[in-house]
């Protein structure tokens, strides 16, 4: 039902010119992961900006791959600190790219505080990126359900929520139904995504 998204941001490839510029930055960061923050900040200006044919944005792919390269070069013991630093020192676009990279970084649950931080914002770009496959795999049930509800509140299509059909449960359905009832009682439109979710039979009840 939900279209299978393109490769994750860390596995996506760019057009040849942009790819070459990114490879240069990646080499720099592999040599010295301490340069990650600067490389991520400059990535869009150096590599490029705008839509990539696979549905990602060029700057998201560039930054996510830089984060992955730094994490790999640092090794398992230091990777989560490197990723956390990239998030904490990043602007909203950079934080979004860190979140998009998480599923491929082999961090177990260590990066959950970053997802929780993003879900505390009202920035749709961050909330959408936070509800990807990493949250589906690691976020505890209460926080995950509130993340889904927040998507409905701030107008993010539920296609942004990874593994929605697998992780949804009776409690989420109850919360979404209550939200829909509240909107109806107020004479306000119920988001079509909320309706669609309630209309679908859970595949994993």
């Amino acid at each position: 039902m939900t279209p299978d998204p393109a490769p994750t941001a860390t596995r996506a490839r760019l057009a040849s010119g942009a790819e070459a510029r990114l490879e240069e930055l990646i080499t720099e960061v592999r040599r010295d992961p301490g340069r990650l923050s600067r490389a991520v900040a400059r990535a869009a200006r150096v590599v490029g900006r705008g839509p990539n044919p696979d549905g990602h944005r060029v700057e998201d792919v560039a930054r996510a791959r830089l984060v992955a390269a730094a994490a790999e070069a640092t090794g398992p013991a230091g990777a989560s600190a490197v990723v956390e630093d990239a998030y904490r020192t990043g602007d909203a676009d950079e934080r979004r790219a860190v979140l998009l990279a998480l599923p491929d970084l082999d961090l177990a649950a260590a990066a959950l505080p970053l997802v929780e931080d993003a879900l505390r914002t009202n920035d749709a770009r961050l909330v959408a990126a936070a509800m990807g496959p990493y949250a589906a795999a690691h976020l505890q049930a209460e926080a995950w359900r509130h993340g889904v509800l927040k998507c409905l509140f701030v107008g993010i299509p539920l296609t942004a929520v990874a593994d929605l059909e697998h992780r949804r449960d009776a409690e989420l359905d109850r919360m979404v139904a209550a939200y829909a009832a509240e909107r109806e009682a107020a004479g306000r439109e119920v988001p079509p995504d909320a309706r669609a979710l309630l209309d679908r039979t859970p595949s994993n009840p």
Partner: peptide, 15 residues
């Protein structure tokens, strides 16, 4: 504008 920076928004669904 917002769509270009992230996921599409449907303003009608703003809580």
């Amino acid at each position: 504008n917002t769509l270009q920076r992230g996921e599409p928004l449907t303003p009608a669904a703003q809580g």
